[in-house]
C-alpha cells in the first residue's frame, strides 16, 4: 500500500465536506459536513503515522485529540443551533443575519 491512495481519498472527503458546507442550508447539515472534513484530516494523520512509524505513535495521538475536540465541537454546535432554533423557530443558516452589518 502506498501512502498516496489514502491521501487522495482524504482529499476527496475534504472536498466533499467543503461542498456540503457551502451548499447546505440547515445548520445541523452544515455540522455534518464539518465532521466529514475533520474525518479527512484524521485519515491524513494516521496515514502519515503509518509511513513514519514514530516510536511514540504521534500521528495516532493527534488523531485522538482531533476526535476529542470534534466531539466537543458537535456538543457546543448543536447547543447553539438549538438555542437559535428556540429563538428564531428556524435552523436555516440563510436566515441567520442577526450579527451581519
Amino acid at each position: 500500500m502506498i501512502v498516496n491512495q489514502f491521501l487522495v481519498l482524504a482529499a476527496l472527503l475534504f472536498a466533499l465536506g467543503v461542498y456540503g458546507l457551502l451548499v447546505r442550508r440547515n445548520a445541523v447539515m452544515v455540522l455534518l459536513a464539518v465532521e466529514l472534513m475533520l474525518n479527512a484530516v484524521n485519515i491524513n494523520l494516521v496515514a502519515f503515522e503509518a509511513v513514519l512509524r514514530s516510536s511514540e505513535a504521534i500521528g495516532q495521538v493527534f488523531a485522538i485529540f482531533v476526535i476529542t475536540v470534534a466531539a466537543a465541537e458537535v456538543g457546543i454546535g448543536l447547543a447553539i443551533v438549538l438555542m437559535i432554533f428556540r429563538n428564531r423557530a428556524s435552523a436555516n443558516v440563510d436566515e441567520l443575519n442577526l450579527m451581519k452589518w
Binding site: 500500500m1 502506498i2 501512502v3 498516496n4 491521501l7 496515514a47 503509518a50 509511513v51 513514519l52 512509524r53
Partner: peptide, 16 residues
C-alpha cells in the same frame, strides 16, 4: 490537494 500530495509523496510505501 491531490496534485500536491501526488507530487510530494509519489509512490512512497507504508512502513512495516
Amino acid at each position: 490537494l491531490s496534485w500536491g500530495s501526488l507530487r510530494a509523496f509519489g509512490t512512497t510505501e507504508l512502513a512495516n
